[in-house]
Write a protein that binds this DNA or RNA. Structure first.
Lengths: 251, 251
DNA sequence: CGTGAGTTTGATTCCATTCAATCGAGGTGG
DNA sequence: CCACCTCGATTGAATGGAATCAAACTCACG
């Protein structure tokens, strides 16, 4: 992570110091020694991706790309949080996913983005031209497998989200969401039990299929039960993770 | 489709006549002439897959592979319908997907299947050893792209299912489900407006996050509204597809 | 200090679940 | 061939949880 300067030096465009290299994490498809998520990119692959990338920055609430827009780029989040959403014919908005560092953005269909991507916080990302990436992947079978693994990972996540969101009550959905956020934040390495909610209640509600009021009430319930403590509307303290997991029906 | 005998003749195991070749359909990631789903496999690739496959048959209600089992094979459905489900700690069952001809089965994590796959009807499939498939994919970059496209397609489908299932009421969910089934059946080429439901109400309910009673009531509503007609518990006649799409909030 | 967006709390309504009972089809055995 | 049996589907009545409507509150910001 700290000796990637060798790589970036050759690429002045992405050569700003202390920018972590492109990164794709996933639980591998096949059996491996580490049962958790692992870095799938080798240093060579990271270098190859940097070679076709530009580092781009977005301010809060900026649209990264619009639904239906011509899909020319794929993004690999470096820092910050984004969301994707679709606009329904009747004008309603449907949040389909939240994206964190090392996630990939740019899912498209027939050359058009399937959803609008928007930064929820200041965000930096590697921006890779789709054509170049396709060429690279076609040349390097290992890299291709990386993307296959990542997509399998995303697919499993999506199915899990569906299954849990669809069957659980508001309290369980919110508990699961908090735990997911907690695990998504890179600081999970430390024993930090603080979770920040970079998105509005409205976004959470939409993502979980609830109303903003239901989110509030669920948080209230969890606080009353001693599982969490609210530190302002954007920050939570996890007090009892064991009970939280039970509330989310993970156990 | 009809001249694939040249290929199968070399492979006696899969040489039974009138078995369609391996097949992977998806809307391509990149822009293409045909905006709908297209066959992604070339004849050469079909031949290569046949070379590493065995055709297997399952009777109704047979388990194809169990959740947590060592994942050694990937399946490509030839005919019939399957479902995948997870068992929760409390014994509840959660249907995560239904699989139709040309779909892929065998999603795994760390070498273990993430869900149980079960045949809902008599089912035939190409059974491909994972190792052989991995070798093949690593050798043929084009084939690799095929799987990437298919996975993207599945991911988009999963996100759409989540978004629609989570926000709509019972009537809309059931209407959407019926339309999805209708489009999934290969007979969609003809102007056939009959849909058969190979799964139990319980399975549909689970998949849509409803109760079996709610499914019944939604079907009753749709029938009263003149959108469909029930022909026994397992068959539906679509009377007004335009209205069905509106009911499913697709328009 | 006022302003306004976002969040929280409260009261009512609505929809789906739950519980309970009936209906219907497929299968078995007499 | 028919009565019976069982499982699944359907229908009905009561309950419960979240949406909705409405209002109070909090915090950041000018």
């Amino acid at each position: 992570m700290d000796k990637d300067n060798d790589l970036t030096i050759r690429q002045p465009v992405a050569a700003k110091p202390k920018i972590p290299p492109p990164s794709i994490f996933a639980k591998p498809f096949a059996r491996s020694t580490d049962p958790g998520v692992v870095q799938l990119l080798t240093e060579d692959e990271q270098a190859a991706l940097i070679a076709i990338s530009r580092v781009v920055e977005f301010r809060r609430h900026t649209v990264i790309y619009p639904e239906g827009g011509r899909s020319r780029f794929v993004y690999n989040v470096i820092s910050g949080v984004a969301e994707t959403y679709c606009l329904l014919p009747d004008g309603e908005r449907r949040v389909s996913s939240f994206l964190f560092p090392s996630d990939l953005l740019g899912l498209s269909e027939n050359g058009e983005y399937v959803a609008t991507a928007q930064a929820l916080t200041p965000l930096t990302a590697y921006k890779m031209p789709f054509e170049d990436l396709a060429r690279l992947v076609r040349r390097d079978p290992d890299l291709d497998v990386v993307f296959l693994c990542k997509l399998c990972h995303e697919l499993r996540q999506a199915e899990r989200h569906t299954v849990t969101a669809i069957h659980n009550d508001a309290r369980a959905r919110v508990a699961g969401f908090i735990l997911w956020l907690w695990r998504s934040e890179v600081t999970a390495l430390t024993d930090d039990t603080t979770v920040t909610l970079p998105m509005l209640r409205h976004d959470i509600a939409d993502y979980l299929g609830l109303s903003t009021e239901a989110i509030s009430r669920a948080l209230h319930q969890l606080e009353t039960g001693g599982l969490i403590q609210r530190r302002g509307p954007r920050a939570l303290q996890l007090l009892n993770i064991q009970e939280l997991r039970r509330a989310a029906r993970e156990i």
